[in-house]
Each structure stands twice: as C-alpha cells, then as structure tokens.
Design a protein around this nucleic acid. Structure first.
Lengths: 177, 177
DNA sequence: ACCTGAACACCGTTCAAGT
DNA sequence: ACCTGAACACCGTTCAAGT
C-alpha cells in the first residue's frame, strides 16, 4: 500500500534523494553507491528513486554536480595566480574519489561522459581567468592545459597536503613564467 | 561431472585465465570485467577461476600487471629526456582506462592499493633514471613528482595524441630546466 | 503524479560434492 | 589438485498495480 507524498514539494523529495546519494558516496565511495542502499536509507522502495532518476548514472551526476558546485562557488583565496591555483587544488582534494568514479563511468555512459567534459571545461575557464593577467594569450592555451594536467595529476598522486603544495609552488611558476 | 585438467601445466591454465581477463578488460573495460564473463569465454565454471584467484581483484591485478609489463620492458626511444618521456607517455596512453579502474578499486581493496603504489614507485624510478643526467639531485625529487603528475594528468585529459605531445614538449623543458 | 511489490537477469563468493 | 552445480546475498532495471 504505497503511501503517497504528492503533497510534499517535488524539489524537496529530489533533495532527499540527492542528499542520501552524496552521503553514500562520501562514506562508502562509488563501490558502495547503490540505488538499493539509498532507498534503504530513505526507507522507501527502490522505484521511488527511479521515479526521479531514470538510471543510477543520472543520480551520480546530480550528486557530484551538487558537491562540485558547493566547492566552486567559493571565491579563491590568495594574491597571485600560483596561490589561487594551490587554493583551488586544495579545495578539490577531497573530491578526487568522486572525480575518478565519474571518469570511470564516463567510459560507458554518454550522459556521464558529457557531464565529465562540462566539468573539465568549467575548470579550464576558471583557470583561464586566473591566468589572464600573467600569461599572454598566445601561450595561454597550452599553459592552461598543462596547469590543469599538473593539478589533476598531483591530486591523483594522493600526496599529503604539504607535499602537494610544495610541488605546486615549485612547478607552477615555471609553467606560468 | 567435472572434466579434470590436472595433466595440463598449471602455468598454462593461469595464462588462459589471465589472457581472457585481459581481453575482457580491453574490449569492455572494467565495467564489463566479470568473473562470470571470463568463465563463459573459457567454457568453464566460475569456480574454475576461483581455484587460481581468490577474488576478482586478484585477477584484476594479475591482468593489469601483465599488460603493464608488456609496455614497460620496451626500451625508450628518443635522444633527450623530453623525447623519452613523451615516448613513454604515448606507450601508457592506451592504458589509461585500466589505470583508472585500478585506482578506483584501490580505494576499497588493500591488495589493489598496494599494487597501485608499486606501479607508481616503478614509474618514479623509471623517470628518475631518465632525468638523472639533466636534473641535479637536489631538485630531482619534486621534479620527478611534478613530471609524473603532468604526464598522468595529460593522459587523464584524454587529448588527441598530437595535442598531448604538444603540451608535453612545451611544458617538460620548463620543469626540467 | 507518485509509490510499492514482485520479478528478471546479472553479479561475486561460498559450500558440498565429485574426479 | 582441480573442477562442477547449486546456492546465497546482493545488484540495476522493468512491469503491473495501486493511490
């Protein structure tokens, strides 16, 4: 006998689901991220989730999008571009697990692939802005690519925060020039 | 009625399994990598695989290890370190999917985590050797870290080969000095 | 519009049993 | 030592049915 929640605002119900998804992702990672577990946490049937999200990947996108948004809206701290880039990299550090999961899923789902490209574009735009004052337009294209690669590579390496900042503060000035 | 293959050399049977695993990984990626599918390809019961590999992760490690070995034994081509590093990055390009899967699994399985660390150490050692002539020991620690991060980041970006080489040939000389 | 229960096809892993 | 069949607990997804 389905209890109906047509009275509750749709947005609130979606938020419940995305919130549970984010918690599951944070505590158990993508391996422990299952529609079944989310439905259990919410005390609902699995199909209650499917009503709002047609596949598991759609829910993954919504959850990661929200988490990423929370990070990227903050204004960067730091005087020069190097400090600002280090700051952003720090912000993204706790996020590396999700980014990997998205990359992995992107290889098998077109929606996730598109989302992944959007995120990369956003990061490139952000970096381009930070570097606009110090890098001439002619060089800026590949510098942005290289800096982004360096930052993502450093995050991938899972260094301790001090080591990560050390490498970046040494290497970034050389690339930026 | 189990047909017994006690007569066949154990190493050959292991090779059959690892070979099938590598094929599955190459064609369908980690998402399509399943003990069930491998057993099907071999025309055996799933437990025939479990006799040699206690878990799916152990088989994953064996398969990736073999693939990686095939790549890393080749001698690098190129005169200067930059050319050699670009060459190695090219070799590792087809390998990026597997590396991501291993990273993802490493977050939930200790064996895979250890294997992942070993691979990173191996790459660091390899890079250290390539850079020993051109980078003084004092700087070499973080230069190796930065170069490895740059290479892995560039692979992660999934650029076309020409774009990848372009960025590396611009950026690497700046880091190496 | 919203939700449930039951089912389907698929896993990884384990157990008991066979040669 | 090597292999199978059957089972268990878990998935993602779909269907038919209820309010």
């Amino acid at each position: 006998v389905p209890r109906n929640r047509a009275d509750v605002d749709r947005a609130d119900k979606v938020d419940d689901i995305v919130g549970a998804a984010r918690r599951q992702l944070e505590t158990k990672g993508f391996a422990g991220f299952s529609i079944a577990a989310i439905a259990r946490e919410l005390g609902r049937a699995q199909n209650a989730v499917y009503w709002y999200f047609p596949t598991k990947d759609h829910l993954l996108i919504a959850a990661v999008e929200q988490s990423l948004h929370d990070v990227l809206v903050r204004k960067p701290r730091g005087r020069d571009p190097v400090e600002q880039i280090v700051w952003f990299t720090d912000q993204l550090a706790g996020f590396q697990g999700l980014r990997l999961s998205v990359r992995e899923r992107a290889r098998h789902d077109d929606e996730v692939a598109r989302f992944d490209r959007d995120v990369t574009d956003l990061l490139r735009t952000l970096l381009d802005g930070l570097l606009s004052a110090s890098v001439p337009p002619a060089r800026r294209g590949w510098v942005v690519t290289a800096v982004l690669a360096l930052c993502e590579g450093v995050l991938l390496a899972d260094l301790p925060p001090r080591g990560r900042r050390g490498v970046l503060t040494e290497a970034l000035p050389l690339l930026i020039g």
